[in-house]
């Protein structure tokens, strides 16, 4: 059972990490985050279901289009819910993205349907036995893909022009402007990438759970907790915190029962932030007087 708990914890944890990376990406580039990130998780899964199952298109195509849809959502969120407020130096982007999430969740509810549906996957039909525990192959695939994507993002950031542009804006937006980089467009790209990551997570976890209009909400909140816990400015910290969070959640559920999971995990978060106010791997901003 411990194996199952660990695998399950690592799997969910890597997904939290992936969604939290989305918070990280927009935060470092623009100082803002999309609080409707959970809705992007939902959208990824719902689009995947609608295209791949309802319309019966080939799954790879459905997945690609679903991810494209998520990226588009990111662009729309940035343009309508973030930029108008940031340009007026208002913090209301925070509430605007929350409201945007409510609108999107309900829009999905009325188009996709009210019932949870199941996204079939060959990797989640027949369990295999590993160390005395039955697991779906997908449960093993998820942490591998999750960490793989996180690693790929790192590689993209380090190796491609787009990645370097994002990093440049994150490190020094003014200097980036002087390089001829359009910071606005870069921020929009970061939002697209952020929603895309959430979409990947949504598509990966959908076959294990179910596809519904509200599947992403709790994931979004937990991922935000993960992003903060890891130190939202540190990509490594965020992924690490995701794994820790997933494992802690699974272990508390297995030992104390799921009724105590949220109390214990959220108490630990408050405690951790009291001890490390900038998150596990976050760096304190220099207090310049």
């Amino acid at each position: 059972m411990l194996t199952g708990t660990l695998v399950s914890g690592l799997g969910l944890g890597s997904m939290y990490g992936l969604i939290a990376l989305g918070f990280h990406v927009t935060y470092v580039v623009s100082g803002t985050v999309n609080f409707a990130q959970g809705s992007a998780v939902t959208l990824g899964a719902v689009l995947g279901y609608a295209l791949g199952v309802t319309l019966g298109w080939p799954m790879p195509l459905a997945v690609l289009l679903a991810l494209a849809g998520c990226a588009l959502l990111g662009l729309v969120v940035e343009r309508l819910l973030v930029r108008p407020f940031v340009e007026r130096a208002s913090d209301s982007w925070l509430l605007a993205t929350v409201a945007g999430g409510i609108v999107l969740d309900n829009a999905i509810l009325f188009t996709f349907g009210k019932e949870p549906r199941s996204l079939p996957s060959v990797l989640a039909t027949r369990p295999v036995e590993i160390l005395g525990t039955g697991l779906y192959p997908l449960q093993l695939v998820i942490p591998v893909v999750g960490l793989g994507v996180a690693f790929a993002i790192r590689t993209v950031f380090r190796r491609t022009d787009l990645g370097r542009v994002l990093l440049a804006v994150a490190q020094n937006a003014d200097a980036a402007r002087l390089m001829g980089i359009d910071v606005r467009r870069t921020v929009a790209c970061a939002y697209a990438l952020s929603a895309l990551l959430a979409g990947v997570a949504g598509l990966l976890i959908a076959p294990l759970f179910s596809v519904s209009a509200e599947m992403g909400t709790l994931f979004g909140i937990k991922a935000f907790a993960v992003a903060i816990l890891g130190g939202i400015g540190s990509a490594t910290g965020v992924v690490l915190a995701g794994l820790l969070y997933g494992l802690a959640e699974a272990l508390v559920t297995a030992t104390l029962g799921s009724t105590y999971t949220q109390i214990v995990v959220f108490s630990v978060i408050i405690l951790a932030l009291a001890l490390r106010p900038d998150g596990l791997l976050g760096r304190a901003a220099v207090n310049k007087v």
């Binding site: 059972m1 199952g4 399950s8 294990l208 759970f209 709790l218 559920t253 297995a254 029962g257």
Partner: peptide
């Protein structure tokens, strides 16, 4: 007697 939350997705511990 085992309990689960409406949002739980893995009941293996309880069932075990």
């Amino acid at each position: 007697i085992e309990k689960f939350e409406a949002s739980d997705v893995d009941m293996v511990p309880q069932l075990t």
